[in-house]
């Protein structure tokens, strides 16, 4: 029904609409705004679920100061894709029976989702997933990282994760001898 409204009425309608909006607005550390399905956010993130339930969602953009815009865009993208994907048997069974089926391999779309990310974007996304308590996204991103680690030497692992070696040569040699089985070439 198209009816002209006065300014006050429009404001009123907007407020009502926001109260039962089915999305939430998230704000990255650099001030960018992202809309995400409320249902998917609550289902996939324990932190966002808590905020939604506790009423601490800001309609003008809930501040997530720890998360940059690129990572937040990926989080939102993941949530929306997840909301659109058919609930998989894998996820249903993992929620019912965590004891016997804790980890399910990433699905095809999840695999593609992380495969397209740059190295830095992937690492930022892991941090964001950890911060937001997103178990499934952590599974998917960490699975990708563990695949990247396959066949890598400690030197190469240091390079990937930007960490400094604080072992002495002797310490490294001792461990290598002790656990020689872990070091022969693939």
């Amino acid at each position: 029904m198209e009816v002209d409204k006065g300014k006050g009425e429009a404001e009123e309608t907007r407020k009502v609409a926001e109260a039962d909006r089915d999305t939430v607005t998230l704000k990255s550390s650099d001030g960018k705004l992202f809309e995400v399905s409320k249902e998917a956010a609550a289902r996939l993130s324990t932190v966002l679920a808590g905020m939604i339930a506790g009423g601490s969602i800001d309609d003008n953009g809930t501040d997530l100061k720890q998360i940059g815009s690129e990572a937040l865009e990926n989080v939102v993208d993941y949530c929306n894709k997840h909301a659109n994907s058919i609930p998989s048997a894998a996820l249903i069974s993992s929620s019912i029976s965590f004891n016997t089926a804790p980890f399910k391999e990433p699905e095809e779309w999840e695999r593609k989702f992380v495969d397209r990310l740059s190295h830095d974007a992937l690492f930022d996304l892991v941090e964001a997933a950890n911060f937001l308590g997103m178990e499934r996204l952590l599974d998917v991103t960490c699975h990708k990282i563990s695949e990247m680690m396959k066949g890598k030497s400690p030197d190469q692992i240091r390079e990937v994760f930007n960490i400094k070696n604080d072992y002495t040569k002797e310490e490294l040699e001792e461990i290598r001898q002790e656990l020689a089985w872990a070091f022969y070439d693939d």
Partner: peptide, 14 residues
Amino acid sequence: EPALLVRAALACKA
């Protein structure tokens, strides 16, 4: 793949 954890342990002491 137990070797992955051993190699990770050798990245740094932390």
